[in-house]
Simulated assay, not measured.
Amino acid sequence: MMNRIALSWSGGKDSCMALHELTGQGEEVACLVTTVPQETGKTFAHNEDIKNIQAQADSIGIPLELVRCRYDTYSEDFLEKLKRLKVEYRLDSIAFGDMYLEGHREWGQKLAYEAGLKAIYPLWSKKTEMLKALSKFVNSGYKAEVIKVREDLLPADWVGRPLDETFIEDICKKAVCPMGESGEYHTFVYDGPLFKKMIILNPSK
């Protein structure tokens, strides 16, 4: 029987590829779930404008659910919302786009368990496979750009760069994970196979 899945959605390449993998497997992603700390009013980690995330959901055709949380009660707020979504969408599972960080996986598994759901990691791989994963995304037909970097690790002027072959060449010269799994950079996907129309980004700052 087909799973009904909530997908943790940042708007970036990882969550997009997770969605691509799940739909390709014939799974049903019932809703996208995005955390929005009250302290910023924008998405967690990516600091993205909610209007842009909503535009993605509208283009993809999957409902977007926002988790309004606080940094100091992030897990508790997420769990409370997830329990409600489980009933509303008749969920079986929650999926995450994490690729190899064990701490992130343990957190997601604990969250899912406490909500009575199964945790799914469709992109889970090895750290040594990250360059291959980046190449797969770049060649997938999806279009994304860098929206945030850790300026102690990457140049500030990388913000706005498209993820393309030149980006792959340049990221390989840096002492960082090619996929930015430790937050070295964040992206926004604005077009691709699952999008009905291209997204025009609303400025986040």
Rank of each mutant, 00 (worst) to 15 (best):
M2Q: 13
M2Y: 11
N3Q: 14
N3P: 11
S8M: 10
S8D: 03
W9Q: 03
S15H: 01
A18R: 00
H20N: 13
H20C: 01
H20G: 06
T23C: 11
G26V: 09
E28A: 13
V29P: 01
L32K: 00
V33S: 08
T34L: 05
V36P: 06
P37V: 01
G41I: 03
A45R: 15
N47E: 15
N47D: 14
D49F: 05
I50D: 01
I53F: 09
Q54L: 11
Q54G: 09
Q54H: 11
D58Q: 11
D58R: 10
G61P: 04
P63N: 06
L66C: 01
R68F: 14
C69P: 03
R70P: 10
D72M: 05
S75M: 14
F78H: 09
F78R: 02
F78S: 09
L79Y: 00
L85T: 08
L85N: 03
K86V: 06
K86H: 01
K86W: 05
R90F: 13
L91V: 02
D92N: 13
S93T: 09
I94P: 07
G97C: 00
D98C: 01
D98Y: 01
E102A: 11
G103A: 08
H104S: 05
H104N: 10
E114W: 10
E114S: 11
G116R: 04
G116C: 08
K118I: 13
A119M: 06
Y121T: 01
P122W: 01
P122K: 03
P122G: 07
L123Q: 04
L123E: 05
S125C: 12
K127I: 12
T128E: 15
L131N: 12
K132H: 14
A133K: 15
F137K: 05
N139G: 10
G141E: 02
I147H: 05
K148L: 12
V149S: 08
V149I: 07
E151Q: 12
E151P: 06
D152C: 08
P155H: 02
A156Y: 10
D157T: 08
D157K: 08
V159S: 05
V159Q: 07
G160F: 05
P162F: 10
P162W: 07
L163R: 06
T166G: 15
T166L: 13
F167I: 07
E169W: 06
E169C: 02
C172E: 14
K174Q: 14
A175P: 10
P178R: 00
M179C: 15
E184F: 07
Y185A: 06
H186Q: 09
F188A: 04
D191N: 11
L194S: 07
L194R: 10
F195T: 03
K196R: 15
I199G: 02
I200Q: 13
I200C: 11
N202I: 13
P203R: 00
P203Q: 02
S204Q: 12
S204W: 12
S204N: 15
